[in-house]
């Protein structure tokens, strides 16, 4: 897992979400999916967004990723408003969404093909990314041959390949079993450590958020808005049995319930 490749360390962004609202008109009454959501993420920071289902966290994710537009307000990356998806915004979804007709290496190299790189340089980068996520030797496999955890590792490597300034993840470990989830969490922290990326991670799992995040944005539903931002001052690696873990858990849960 550990790779000391300095060049995997790349750009990282300062993210500002400023007064973002999203309203849908429906047959009965307008839905306020997001209402005046504001927060900032420092370069290299790991921020989790938690909240009950229906709090609009996936909508927020899609707006920051440029996949959906806000009714009001802006999400910006280093001062530039996001106006569409692009290689500066790496996305990882719960459903992996690999290209099934491409091999593992073909998936990781997908974004690199749109860039001005020699085939050799591309292969080399793909090789390094595969080793970063612990998938050496799987380059020629097809997605159908992989387990869920392996698929998500490929998706992460694919998103990192184009050196995004921000890595956005929407419940990325929601579809794997508990054991695999813990392993992937550890590995993600390792990847974060290696690459220094800014990471914005959406989850409904409070434990997961406390395990991973520097800061937790706790959201409220109907309308979706920020209830509280919690700084997690715990040494890494963190474990559920740590002294402070339980206190943070109670605190975050209280905000969600309140």
């Amino acid at each position: 897992m550990a790779v000391d490749d300095a060049d995997l360390e790349g750009d990282r962004a300062h993210v500002v979400v400023d007064g973002v609202s999203k309203h849908y008109s429906s047959a009965q009454e307008p839905v306020r999916a997001l209402e005046d959501v504001s927060f900032a993420v420092d370069p290299g920071e790991f921020v989790c967004i938690v909240g009950p289902s229906g709090c609009g966290k996936t909508t927020l994710f899609r707006i920051i990723a440029g996949l959906e537009s806000a009714t009001d307000g802006t999400a910006s990356l280093d001062g530039e408003p996001v106006d569409g998806p692009g290689p500066e915004l790496g996305v990882v979804f719960q459903e992996y969404l690999l290209f099934p007709w491409r091999t593992v290496a073909g998936n990781v190299g997908f974004g690199l093909e749109k860039q001005d790189l020699t085939a050799t340089a591309r292969d080399e980068r793909v090789r390094r990314l595969l080793s970063l996520v612990g998938l050496e030797g799987f380059g020629d496999s097809y997605p159908k041959e992989l387990s869920g955890g392996m698929k998500q590792r490929v998706a992460i490597a694919r998103a990192l390949a184009v050196d995004p300034e921000l890595l956005l993840m929407d419940e990325p470990f929601g579809a794997v079993d508990a054991q695999t989830r813990e392993m992937l969490q550890d590995e993600l922290l390792e990847v974060w450590h290696e690459t220094g990326k800014t990471i914005l991670f959406v989850t409904h799992d409070v434990e997961e958020a406390i395990t991973l995040a520097d800061r937790i944005v706790v959201m409220d539903s109907e309308p979706g808005r920020v209830r509280e931002v919690v700084d997690v001052d715990l040494e890494r690696p963190r474990s559920r049995s740590d002294d402070g873990f339980g206190r943070y858990y109670e605190r975050v849960l209280e905000h969600i319930r309140a």
């Binding site: 440029g66 998806p85 290689p87 996305v91 979804f93 974004g111 749109k114 998103a159």
Partner: peptide, 10 residues
């Protein structure tokens, strides 16, 4: 979603 992924990869 697959198209979204492709767009986000450039």
């Amino acid at each position: 979603d697959l198209l979204d992924v492709a767009r986000s990869l450039g």
